[in-house]
Design a protein around this nucleic acid. Structure first.
Length: 819
DNA sequence: TGAAGGATGCTCCCG
DNA sequence: GCATCCTTCA
């Protein structure tokens, strides 16, 4: 069945070019070497296509070949293609691969993330609804800072509202396309905390508007709003994009879903002028002047959905066929990445999720190496093992660049780093402490923003006293008051230093800052109206940093860290030069967009011969010959916080599944028996997920049992039955009581798991539960319902289990029965 | 106004 | 264990 295919025309594909004889398709070379489902995914033509792509099943290949095929057969102009990827990096790679396939004719496609695509649209259309095209993009730090001020002003802490809490609620609401007004209508306004929240939400939104700024969530939500409020604007994009492709569809949230929905709507042909731009499409002249909706291709794998915590809605993919009737579904189940051993382990783990459709990945590359397991006494011990193993593999000529180390939380990287430095292993941390999150970089960018978008008060306030100019709270308030009285912006108030009623020294400082900003504005946004060259970004930034005294202050400082800060600023200047090189037409706005959306400085170069360290989330979409999954412990993976969220444990299992399936040839699983967190050492337990892997797949160099009994190298180890909670009075530091293993019925009994895998998605229908009801859960046992919240498919039962404690469960799919 | 020092709380994941 | 916040004092 997986036999490589000579260009075979599959059904509907032929209709794409009725005249072209089989075998002479212009895209024939693009179809070579594809297996049958892949071929179908590339050549199917129709309004909607869902490609269910298991891990490593070649979906990037399918997507790029599909795009290339559309272009090659002249079914689409490049400008009619919109491809959405999950990260900027993925977008860059996809563009490169398409270009490689069809050459320069790929120019003009939009291949980008949701956020970049929306910024592009908003920059063009912002003036439609009260913004200008030079709007600022607030990252989560910026909105946090703004909310902090608002929470303080509204004295909301008295109601238990924190900036972080408010921020995450607002973010969730925006992902659901709720705004302050619509939320207020259905909120319980008799609750004072709720009332204050609504006030803050409203104030936050109007502050953003005043600052001519969007936060991350707004980029999507406001674009949807724009399309809905101004159909003629939406029509422009509907006519333009005839083929929309979305990768990682399982991780889209409701707002993103709605955006795609808006874009794929048919165009109501109010004006007949529209056909010129879509010239390739042929319409029956006698039918109504309506352009049919764009063709939509989505690719996803519900087993790899790992962003529910930030609003991703797995139903977008599971209900695709309902949303797009007549949609074609193609399943890619052959894995080309991993060995059978790795796949078997991953399959066994994910099979424990009760709310999934069964799907089996297979490969024909053979069993390969056993999975290597290791249990360290401490996280340093574990890190040492990883380092030793990496060295051994390197000596066996596995390049460093083909090895990666994953962990659940960023804080785990520190121990690894320490050991790697000592072992002289070249490594690089992906993500983590972000370059653009550093204070000095944010300061520098705030200077640039103050020039590009003077309405952005937050940015101007940020640089007001950086470097120290003796401008404190008092002065800042008088500037704000002056601005309010005169009805001018905060930025413009800086130009009136003598009228502010402050001391002469401070007047001079303000006037100096104003002069620097004005001078930089002339460079980056010349008043003559001509467009400054991209090199003006470098020029303007250097001027701002030098004439403001920012650089000098760092140079004079005796704080050793300030030297590193100077280097970072040099790095930023280098980034602007690079930007100018890559974007001959780039403006200051393009530059700011790029740095706001490319959050990590890691896109630089991966081929540089270093081991990659990253979180399991960051690992999505990547692959390596050798993978080390570290910290495979309870409370880490699954993470402690996930236990009380509906669907949390399942999401953690999917995350672990994603981590395992990144490995091509070698997989290492490691954990530590003790882990230091918050400065204190505590005992750790092996993750329940370890037990879900068939035991004969793991070769334990040192199993939890070994560490437990201090070297009794019996392989009873992990799988051994534990004496029930017994503490066997050992005085040893790593005695039994420190390392209780998760409860287990019988050693080696995989069969137990088999009956937990239902053939289809579990569905309790509209099971009714009320407070006081008793229920039984497959995993947690019996318990009593305390409350029921939510509506429809999202109803959640708050259950107090007799032994497992309080949990929240999604009533529709939880493995529960009413007693 | 700003430096120093202590108290606090936090950390799960991302564009 | 660390960064950030807050108070205190010069």
């Amino acid at each position: 069945m997986p036999d490589p295919i000579k260009p075979v025309i599959v059904g509907s594909a032929a209709s794409a070019r009725p005249g072209a004889p089989a075998g002479e398709r212009p895209d024939a070379d693009l179809l070579e070497g594809l297996n049958r489902p892949q071929l179908e995914a590339v050549t199917y033509r129709g309004p909607a296509l869902l490609i269910v792509a298991g891990a490593g099943s070649g979906k990037t290949r399918v997507l790029t070949h599909r795009i290339a095929s559309l272009l090659r057969t002249r079914e689409a102009y490049p400008s009619q293609i919109l491809a959405i990827t999950f990260t900027n990096k993925a977008a860059g790679e996809m563009r490169e691969r398409v270009q490689h396939l069809i050459g320069d004719s790929a120019q003009g496609m939009w291949i980008s993330t949701f956020h970049s695509a929306c910024v592009r649209i908003l920059r063009r259309e912002a003036q439609q609804f009260g913004f200008t095209k030079s709007f600022t993009i607030y990252d989560s730090g910026d909105s946090r800072a703004l909310l902090k001020r608002l929470v303080k002003e509204h004295e909301a802490d008295a109601f238990g509202l924190t900036p972080a809490g408010v921020q995450s609620r607002i973010s969730k609401l925006k992902n659901e396309l709720a705004d302050a007004d619509s939320y207020a209508r259905q909120a319980n306004m008799s609750d004072p905390a709720e009332r204050v929240f609504v006030e803050i939400f409203g104030a936050y939104q109007s502050a953003l508007q005043r600052a001519n700024a969007f936060d991350f969530d707004d980029l999507i939500a406001q674009t949807v709003y724009l399309f809905r409020a101004f159909p003629h604007v939406a029509d422009v994009y509907r006519k333009r994009f005839r083929h929309i492709l979305v990768d990682e569809y399982q991780d889209t949230n409701h707002a993103q879903y709605a955006l795609i929905h808006e874009l794929t709507r048919p165009v109501q042909g109010s004006g007949g002028d529209s056909f010129s731009s879509g010239g390739m499409m042929i319409f029956e002249p006698e039918t109504t002047p309506e352009v049919e909706g764009a063709s939509l291709t989505v690719v996803g794998d519900s087993d790899q959905s790992i962003y529910a915590f930030r609003g991703a809605d797995i139903r977008n993919i599971t209900e695709f066929e309902r949303d797009y009737p007549g949609a074609k579904v193609v399943l890619l189940e052959q894995n080309y990445r991993s060995t059978q051993t790795i796949l078997s382990a991953a399959n066994a783990v994910i099979a424990n999720n009760f709310d999934r459709k069964d799907k089996k990945l297979w490969t024909d590359v053979g069993a390969g190496e056993a999975i290597v397991g290791f249990t360290g006494y401490s996280q340093h011990d574990e890190a040492q093992f990883v380092a030793d193993e990496i060295e051994a593999l390197h000596r066996a000529s596995v390049p460093y660049s083909q090895m990666a180390v994953f962990y659940r939380t960023n804080s785990q990287s520190r121990a690894l780093e320490e050991i790697f430095i000592r072992a002289a292993i070249p490594y690089k941390i992906m993500g983590g402490t972000k370059f653009y999150d550093r204070a000095e970089i944010k300061d520098a960018l705030a200077y640039v923003v103050a020039v590009a978008n003077p309405a952005d008060e937050l940015a101007v306030r940020r640089i007001l006293n950086r470097p120290r100019r003796g401008i404190g709270d008092v002065t800042e308030t008088s500037i704000a008051r002056f601005a309010a009285e005169r009805g001018i912006t905060f930025r413009d108030a800086l130009g009136h230093a003598p009228e502010l009623g402050v001391g002469p020294k401070i007047q001079a400082a303000i006037a100096q800052l104003d002069a620097v900003l004005t001078e930089a504005t002339e460079i980056m946004l010349p008043s003559s109206g001509e467009i400054a060259p991209p090199s003006s970004v470098t020029e303007g930034l250097s001027l701002l940093l030098n004439k403001s005294g920012y650089m000098d202050a760092l140079r004079m400082s005796r704080d050793p860290q300030d030297e590193a800060r100077l280097e970072n600023l040099d790095e930023l200047i280098a980034v602007t030069r690079e930007f100018a090189r890559n974007n001959p037409e780039g403006t200051i706005l393009d530059f700011l967009t790029e740095v706001a959306l490319v959050a990590d400085a890691d896109d630089l170069d991966d081929a540089s011969g270093t081991v990659s360290l990253m979180t399991m989330h960051t690992a999505k979409g990547l692959e390596y010959d050798a993978v080390f999954v570290t910290g495979v412990e309870e409370d880490l993976i699954p993470h402690r916080i996930s236990a009380n969220e509906p669907g949390g444990p399942q999401e953690e299992r999917r995350l672990f599944y994603v981590a395992l399936t990144r490995a091509r040839k070698r997989l290492h699983l490691s954990l530590a028996m003790t882990r230091a967190q918050f400065g204190e050492v505590s005992a750790a337990m092996p993750s329940r997920f370890l037990q879900e892997i068939p035991h004969d797949l793991i070769d334990w160099r040192q199993s939890p049992g070994d560490v437990n009994s201090r070297g009794g190298m019996q392989s009873r180890a992990l799988n051994a039955r534990r004496p029930g909670g017994g503490s066997g009075g050992s005085g040893k530091r790593y005695g039994d009581d420190l390392v209780p293993l998760p409860r287990r019925e019988k050693s080696g009994d995989i069969a137990k798991f088999a009956n937990r895998i239902p053939a289809k998605v579990r569905d309790n229908g509209d099971l009714q539960l009320a407070p006081g009801d008793r229920i039984r859960h497959d995993d947690f046992g019996e318990g009593r319902v305390d409350a029921v919240t939510g509506e429809g498919a999202k109803r959640v039962a708050h259950v107090r289990f007799d032994s497992a404690g309080a949990k929240k469960l999604l009533i529709k799919i939880a493995p529960i029965v009413k007693l």
